[in-house]
């Protein structure tokens, strides 16, 4: 899949949660790439203090209007400066990178999409893609509190949403793997998950125990994002250290050594 390096214009940048923004970049007529849900972009943060690009999942893609959007949580200088990028300013982006979720070949009809925190980001494009195939997924989101749940209206266009919060301020109290939805393990034929590693490990454990195929999207620290530097490795059962940026970020859980 061809990768592009573009200066993209900030079309919109709005706050959508306590600590999260929705950044929309415009291609302005440049060739719009084919994007698989789960792929990411390496964005150059507009700050003198930041050297390396920041990997950010592609949240949504609108080829007709030449727009791509990102859900960015502010955790440090890079994300802060991206969150403050003004409309009209340009952001240099390298995209689309990595391998996405396997929905094109998986033929899953009852998928469960589990997101934690800002890890919900790639699941919107995944919901859109699944709906294009006539599949209506179920979303299960975990967040610290109600204020950290974002873009629920958008997600609800593609499937039903269930929620857990750590403080009980929305949905069921607790973690995603404790949600009553999972009491009926026959309900789902595949799980796609993205979020904090402890959450994904718990999801992977549940999936393994209930023999449900499961893919997770890893968020390792990256330097190049294109498989050139070998900084972002994950140890796999079949091939040893592989690059998350190139072989991932999405992996079927049986490739990982998490449950061995």
């Amino acid at each position: 899949m061809k990768k592009y390096q573009y200066d993209l214009r900030v079309a919109d940048n709005v706050k959508v949660g306590t600590n999260t923004v929705l950044l929309t970049l415009s291609f302005d007529g440049k060739t719009f790439p084919d994007i698989v849900a789960g792929q990411f972009a390496e964005l150059q943060a507009p700050s003198d203090k930041v050297l390396l690009r920041r990997p950010i999942s592609i949240h949504d893609a609108d080829p007709d209007n030449g727009l791509v959007s990102f859900l960015i949580q502010i955790v440090g200088e890079g994300s802060r400066s991206l969150a403050q990028a003004a409309i009209g300013q340009t952001v240099n982006a390298v995209l689309p990178l990595g391998n996405g979720f396997s929905y094109l070949t998986a033929h899953s009809v009852r998928p469960l999409l589990i997101g934690g925190g800002v890890g919900v980001a790639p699941l919107l494009l995944l919901g859109r893609r699944l709906s294009e195939y006539g599949v209506r997924p179920t979303f299960l989101f975990g967040a610290r509190n109600a204020g950290a749940l974002v873009r629920l209206d958008e997600f609800s266009r593609y499937g039903n949403i269930f929620v857990t919060t750590e403080d009980g301020s929305a949905g069921e109290k607790g973690f995603v793997t404790g949600h009553s939805l999972l009491l009926d393990s026959e309900c789902f034929d595949r799980i796609y998950s993205c979020g904090p590693t402890p959450m994904m490990k718990a999801v992977a454990k549940w999936a393994m125990e209930h023999e449900t195929p499961c893919e997770v999207s890893l968020e390792h620290k990256m330097a190049c994002g294109i498989g050139a530097c070998l900084c972002c490795v994950e140890d796999t059962a079949d091939e040893g250290n592989v690059c998350v940026c190139k072989d991932g970020p999405v992996f079927p859980i049986e490739r990982l050594k998490w449950l061995h």
Partner: peptide
């Protein structure tokens, strides 16, 4: 090579510990 994490960004630079993978 070495275990992850192998990279840290530092002011105007980076550290790597790829370990010749």
């Amino acid at each position: 090579g070495n275990p992850y994490p192998r990279m840290a960004e530092t002011p105007q630079g980076m550290l790597n510990a790829v370990g010749l993978q």
